[in-house]
């Protein structure tokens, strides 16, 4: 095992851990560009509905609000999980991570329902430039949540098996950064795609 520095939180305690957290921030920089590009494309194509429906015609506030509350709450609970991790409570960490992932799964279920609804009302991904970019932007976010779900699950298994050590703490912390980031992206989706679209 590498040298452990006890003066900093567990997730930062080795040099490797420090590098991984920094590297992940840089990766999030790239992710911001990725979603930024999708948003730029969305704003370009939002009114180009061709023969298909516009956002105002297909958006429904109920599932969108449900998704928003689910994801925002999960961002809160992952914060609690990291707090519990820093206090050294394995059980509480696992509980809060479990709640986070359950909320993530619920979010995905509502989103799948939402996508089926769009296809049902004639707004499938091939209908117009608007529906293409709408479903691609939402889908990219949804895909990130899906990947995050499995990633979080793997980390939970590792914490359960190996306990809280510099490695699992580091993974959990990085996972929390990722999860918060997805939440931030969702806030932009909620404000600029749904709310603006429904106005």
């Amino acid at each position: 095992m590498a040298k452990v520095d006890h003066s900093v939180p567990l997730e930062y305690s080795t040099e490797e851990n420090d590098l991984k957290i920094f590297g992940f921030w840089v990766f999030l920089g790239a992710e911001i560009m990725l979603f930024g590009t999708l948003f730029a494309a969305y704003f370009t194509l939002v009114d180009r509905t061709g023969s298909g429906p516009s956002g105002a015609e297909i958006f429904e506030i109920t599932p969108v609000l449900a998704e928003t509350f689910l994801l925002l709450t999960s961002s809160f609970t992952i914060g609690l999980a990291i707090h519990a991790m820093r206090l050294g409570s394995k059980k509480a960490t696992l509980t809060f991570m479990g709640i986070t992932l359950a909320l993530g799964l619920a979010f995905l279920s509502v989103e799948i329902y939402e996508f089926l609804h769009y296809v049902h009302v004639g707004a499938g991904i091939t209908v117009s430039a608007f529906t293409s970019i709408l479903l691609t932007t939402l889908g990219t976010h949804g895909l990130h949540v899906t990947v995050g779900f499995f990633w979080g699950l793997f980390i939970m298994i590792q914490i359960a098996k190996r306990g809280l050590n510099p490695e699992t703490a580091n993974k959990s912390f990085i996972f929390s950064l990722y999860w918060h980031f997805l939440d931030v992206v969702w806030i932009f989706i909620f404000s600029f795609i749904y709310l603006k679209g429904m106005m």
Binding site: L45, R48, G50, T126, S128, T131, S132, I133
Partner: peptide
Amino acid sequence: FDTQFFAIGNGGM
């Protein structure tokens, strides 16, 4: 997948 981002017609640009 026949999406319409850059296609002509159906709003593509």
